[in-house]
Design a binder for these strands. Structure first.
Lengths: 263, 263
DNA sequence: AATTCATTGCGTTAGACTGACACAATATAA
DNA sequence: TTATATTGTGTCAGTCTAACGCAATGAATT
């Protein structure tokens, strides 16, 4: 006759079978970027009513490729497949995880995690970042976290972030910016058809600085990864800009070989 | 009255205490590059007389930062400190490790690893690459591997490489080449004082293509990370080239901020 | 001691790229 | 119809890059 709600099945499974299902010591954190209304956003989870926000993450099945685990986490969380997902760093400080979060989660339901349980050991986390199209996406909620939400990147620093997830986010952003310099970007972050000003806004938002419209266009077209369509986007109160799509083959090639090559 | 030699203490410790000392499921592999006689070399271990070559690696102590674990492995293996060490990827395919190697190692000494032992579970490995000065370095041997050796990078593909270490080496080389485009390099790979032709050879070796002598010098000096000394290196049968050192402050700054910035 | 010769230091030039800006065309709103 | 903000296209000077020229130098050769 406890006043606590019943322990959800997914949490119970984690508690009882986690040790059998997952690799010990290794976790995954995903920094999921979305782009909407000229703002870069992050998909965050409101962790177990503790008023702390966390990154969507998970564990690696015992016979699962670690990259697939990251794709699985992304799929479970967003319902999206075939997304650009990039492993950007490993976070392995011994004190980076704080078992008290898990304890709190389970205590809500009147459950206790045994001492030395798989879940409250030290975890080394592999960080991935993903870029997704904000528009054709619906947030998937789960039982462990009461709310999932998109947060504008510049609001994030005012939130209470769990663990070292703030540092992970910062590192992901740095990696994203660095990548921008030598890899194409935007494929999964923008709708299929987009305008040059939209693409530019994306770049400006990630880099957090304005770019010259005309030079941006010249450089972008120079990369040779865009198809110019014979359509324009009407509806804006001004001259209708042309629509573009990414040239898939050339985009993929540029992803592999880089945009420049330098030396 | 076994004919096998006695099990070395370090191996015994791994067998008996490994489970207590180290994190499960996580290992570290180091791709250690050296530069000597205009050749890029790799430090490899002749693994347990099995005629397979492996990368120097190790495990993470239970309360040790994973980056420190990599530095520790490097120190144990080479005796070198303060080396540039870069985490470049995570290797997490479920079938990437092959427990038979460890079995063979212990069977040599007439020891058997228990089933389900910590050591023969699946490991996810974090790859680091290091760049060291070939000259002031002495190879440290250990008990688990009969021989450590420098192997020229283009000989490596003719060797029998253990596990997925061949793929790890390839990925390290790719990362090194990519880094060359936007980060300074050479600090630990060359002696303190070096000539411009020597530095150029290093770049040419890593990139595996010739560079124009005069353009290389102009570009390199343009980075502003070199100090030109008032000495020349005599002894070569020709005009004596000037000696340079790296400007430590500017070198470190360039490591953090990159050499260009592009956008 | 003079000569040879591979290598180094310094320089030039044409073409490509970059940053800053001008001006006409156009889709909606007033 | 006019006004206005925005887009498409273009220019131009400064910078960077690739390719190459030539004199200076240090040891080896004669």
């Amino acid at each position: 006759m406890s006043k606590s709600p019943a322990l959800p099945a997914s949490l119970k499974q984690l508690l009882v079978k986690g040790n059998d299902l997952f690799l010990p010591s290794i976790s995954i954190d995903c920094v999921i970027f979305g782009f909407h209304e000229n703002t870069l956003k992050l998909l965050l989870l409101d962790s177990a009513k503790s008023n702390k926000w966390t990154l969507p993450g998970g564990f690696v099945l015992k016979s699962e490729d670690i990259n697939n685990a990251a794709y699985r986490v992304l799929l479970e969380r967003t319902g999206l497949k075939d997304i650009y997902l990039k492993q950007f760093d490993v976070f392995g400080q011994p004190n980076r995880t704080d078992a008290s979060v898990h304890k709190t989660t389970f205590e809500q339901y009147g459950s206790k995690i045994p001492k030395d349980h798989w879940l409250i050991q030290r975890f080394v986390s592999v960080g991935y970042f993903a870029l997704i199209d904000y528009t054709n996406f619906s947030i998937q909620n789960d039982t462990m976290h009461s709310a999932n939400a998109w947060k504008a990147i510049d609001q994030v620093k005012h939130l209470t972030i769990d663990h070292d997830h703030g540092a992970i986010i910062q590192k992901a952003l740095d990696s994203l910016r660095t990548q921008l310099a030598y890899l194409p970007i935007g494929k999964n972050l923008l709708p299929k058809k987009f305008t040059m000003p939209e693409l530019q806004k994306l770049y400006e938002t990630i880099l957090n600085k304005p770019l010259d419209r005309r030079n941006f266009q010249r450089k972008m077209l120079g990369f040779g990864i865009l198809n110019k369509l014979n359509e324009t986007r009407k509806g804006g109160a001004h001259k209708a800009p042309f629509l573009y799509t990414f040239n898939d083959k050339k985009y993929q090639k540029a992803l592999k070989e880089g945009l420049y090559g330098s030396w």
